[in-house]
Amino acid sequence: MEIIFNTPSAPKETENIENKQNFHIVTPGEQITSDPAFMRGHGTYTQEDVVMASVAGVVERVNKLISVKPLRTRYNAEIGDVVVGRITEVAQKRWKVDINGKQNAILLLSSVNLPGGVQRRKTELDELNMKSFFSEGDLIGAEVQAFFHDGASSLHTRNLKYGKLRNGSLVVVPPALVRRCKSHFYTLPCGVDLILGLNGYIFVSKHPDKKSEELSPEELYSNKNEEITFYQRSAIARVCNCIKALAKHYMYINDSIIIYAYEASLPYKISDLLHDDICEVIVEKAKLQIEMQQTL
């Protein structure tokens, strides 16, 4: 039996990435500029005409507007974003959904697909059956459709790629690490499906036997998992651990870096990926691969 006690060690000397990649990283209270021509945006404040950072993160500049994008933050929704959320409450004609934002998102009964794909107005009977679609605790994939007056986001699942999530587990990473890209739905070569929610919730699951279009009406909202083999389960666990390792080292997360990290992790046992030193090796390897790919 192996139980490891680490002691905190000296921070590693790293090369200065600020110069290399043209980043400007600031900590709260750090001066960004004293030029009065600039306007202050989110994450900044002014003190005696000097723009200072109020959060730790990366400085972003749009023309004259300076803002700081924090590394650790709650998710700021934008229309069209793919998110993964958890139902927290079933209310009148709506579900409240936790999407790691400042307030719960709302999924209206009118923005979900009925089982069987029938198109009609939602009746009182549908309202009574709401808990059979989604109940408290369920994980869903959804898209941000609009905003309410109070800033809460309104979600929809009117597409067969959205809806209830099964056959896998959830990994939570800081939302800043997930970048917007063309697609947020991936099937990795190892037979694992990924949903990269822009809110930092990542769902890793087994590739389903049936396509979502082929599911029967009952199966669409079912809570039952498919049969999952030991091999598939290990692949899911390995991908989850790779994502956690990347997040621990503040690497951005997309499909290709996850694949590289997965490949780099193959010589190690899955449970070994929880150790700090092995995490570091894998992340370094994945980073090198990405850099090589970019120079090609």
Binding site: L139, K164, N223, N225, R233, C240, K244, S271, L274
Partner: peptide, 26 residues
């Protein structure tokens, strides 16, 4: 909160001695 399918996934994983983070039961 936890969803019924996550619960099932964790329980079956423990049965198979492959927990969600790849650890064994002990």
């Amino acid at each position: 909160l936890i969803s019924p399918s996550e619960k099932d996934f964790i329980t079956k994983g423990i049965e198979a001695d492959m927990r969600n983070d790849g650890r064994s039961r002990i």
